[in-house]
Design a protein around this nucleic acid. Structure first.
Ligand SMILES: [Mn+2]
Ligand SMILES: [Mn+2]
Ligand SMILES: [Zn+2]
Ligand SMILES: [Zn+2]
Lengths: 126, 126
DNA sequence: TTATATTTGCAACTCAGTTGCATTAGTATT
DNA sequence: AATACTAATGCAACTGAGTTGCAAATATAA
């Protein structure tokens, strides 16, 4: 059922995602907000913001959870199947708008695709 | 430095991968072999078999570790950047030989790509 | 202002994976 | 075949991301 009330926790978390457009790991949010919010609350609010399609989540290269703002998404149409890029130098993670075409796989029906690219980001790329 | 000795543990683990060609999660191996091998040993031998390019690893949809036999890989040329497919029905995970083409990403240098597809496998696909 | 349900904090838990260390067992040498 | 050497193993304890149950706090509607 998602977010029902505009609580302090919701506002604090949304502010973090307004500050910059790149993705933020749950771990980072928990430690960055440790003085204001409880760990459990952070995880629970992130969950609900995802249900509400305000954020979307994916797994980074260690299998840890990352969240990013949904861009072209509404409740009617949710577009979270884009690739993500994690910089091996600075660790920054971004949503990519470039489409990765998944070819037809023989004898299989593909429903979901997760693409995580790694390399150097714009700032770290000499 | 990888595997140096042909121990009982190495043989037991390699047998599991000879039985069938699909990938096996570390969790499954730990519990399946619990009566013969210690959990720590399973993880350590898997690590070394990967160093030796006998196996390769990747993360499944929950961020848990999976291993599969390397097919066209030698020590000189290791090809582990193929896509993987996890069946949402039966849970089976396979290496795919179909190539997923990663387009050029503006201002970024892509070194590694992880592609995990989910859907129905050949047996579960009606 | 009161009533009600949602949200929060806390502490304890889960579980995949790791680490330190003493013991065991491959392997090469005699 | 016995010895010495070192890698590999088992065990127990640990780590850390994420979860759960429950009582207290707080947003919202009446
Ligand atoms: Mn994204
Ligand atoms: Mn594979
Ligand atoms: Zn970078
Ligand atoms: Zn299946």
């Amino acid at each position: 059922m998602g977010i029902l009330r505009k609580t302090k926790s919701v506002k604090i978390l949304l502010e973090e995602f307004d500050k910059k457009s790149s993705a933020i790991s749950a771990i980072t949010l928990v430690e960055r907000l440790a003085s204001e919010l409880n760990k459990t609350t952070v995880y629970r609010v992130l969950d609900k913001l995802e249900e509400d399609k305000v954020l979307h989540s994916f797994l980074g290269k260690n299998g840890h959870k990352w969240y990013a703002k949904c861009n072209g998404c509404s409740v009617s149409g949710h577009q979270d199947s884009h690739p993500h890029f994690q910089c091996s130098d600075c660790g920054k993670v971004d949503c990519l708008s470039t489409d990765v075409l998944i070819p037809k796989i023989p004898n299989r029906k593909v429903d979901v695709s997760q693409v995580l690219l790694q390399g150097k980001c714009e700032e770290c790329y000499v």
